[in-house]
């Protein structure tokens, strides 16, 4: 049984430390939960494998038909590894907006808000656990698939580590955006279609299926100006690139987007809390 130590200390540092402990406690519980249902996670690997298989066929035929060794600076093997990395990010998504939506509509939010630890911290701890397990599993399944289908590609340890760090920041940004969508249930009847649109737009403009370097120029420029490219394309591109030249721009985009989205969602959460009404029970 996990319990949260009280609000040790006062001020910003004490409060932040308390939040970290809450997130950590939820994280540990939900990692155990994920491990208990590892079979369900593993079945998700079938979908990923089917998808990677189909995309590999598409790119193999494309490379053969174009008669080229590289397209947009990528070899066939690099494209497949790129797809593994982008698919790992996207397929590990946790649709917790649905839970927030349900909490708001059923009124369960009123109970959740008075629990110790904070509503957002609880969701973040659970989200991080589920996302990390799924992300690691997708990387493993995708990695095995890529090794068997196109073999290894040469990557440097530093780009891999910095790319993984960028993925972690992107996962945090994704949480903030999905939280904002879920809280939208205070104003609209059902947020599931907004979540669907968010995932699909980020999928295309993030370069999930085609590296952004292969987009037509105008669309590529638009995609690069949006945070989705930094979330999905950026880390994958970084892992496969020989140097770290793209790092400052990538982290500037991720950090700026996180600050902006975080500010908007913080304000939204404040407004939403004031709209909670309790009707007997």
């Amino acid at each position: 049984m996990n319990t949260f130590p009280g609000r040790a200390g006062r001020g910003v540092v004490g409060h932040a430390a308390y939040r970290v402990r809450v997130i950590q406690a939820y994280f540990v519980v939900h990692v155990r939960d994920q491990m208990a249902y590892l079979g369900e996670v593993a079945l998700g690997g079938i979908i990923l494998t089917v998808f990677l298989f189909v995309l590999t066929q598409l790119w193999q035929v494309t490379f053969r038909f174009q008669g080229a060794d590289t397209l947009g600076g990528y070899t066939l093997a690099q494209v497949i590894w790129y797809l593994v990395l982008t698919e790992a990010f996207v397929t590990s998504r946790v649709a917790f907006a649905r839970k927030i939506d349900s909490d708001v509509r059923t009124g369960d939010l009123a109970y959740a808000l008075v629990r110790p630890g904070g509503y957002v911290s609880a969701h973040f701890g659970a989200y991080l656990a589920e996302r990390m397990v799924r992300f690691a599993f997708a990387l493993m399944v995708g990695g095995v698939f890529a090794l068997l289908s196109v073999g290894p590609v040469s990557v440097g340890p530093v780009p891999v580590l910095v790319g993984l760090l960028a993925s972690l920041v992107a996962i945090l940004l994704d949480f903030v955006m999905v939280l904002g969508i879920g809280l939208g249930a205070f104003w609209i009847e059902d947020t599931s279609s907004i979540y669907l649109i968010y995932t699909r737009v980020s999928m295309i403009l993030g370069g999930l299926l085609i590296p952004i370097d292969l987009f037509p120029d105008t669309v590529g420029a638009i995609a690069r100006a949006l945070p989705f490219a930094a979330m999905i394309h950026g880390p994958a591109r970084l892992v496969l690139s020989p140097g770290l030249g793209e790092v400052p721009r990538l982290f500037a985009m991720l950090g700026g987007s996180l600050a902006l989205a975080g500010g908007v969602v913080w304000w939204e959460y404040g407004v939403a809390r004031r709209r909670v009404t309790v009707q007997g029970g």
Binding site: E189, D190, S193, I194, R200, I204, L209, V219
Partner: peptide, 21 residues
């Protein structure tokens, strides 16, 4: 209507992918 619109947009995004390709 949001479910209908959501699915239309979902499908449209796939066609956009193929258009880009």
């Amino acid at each position: 209507f949001s479910a209908v619109l959501g699915m239309v947009i979902n499908d449209a995004i796939w066609v956009v992918f193929w258009w880009l390709f």
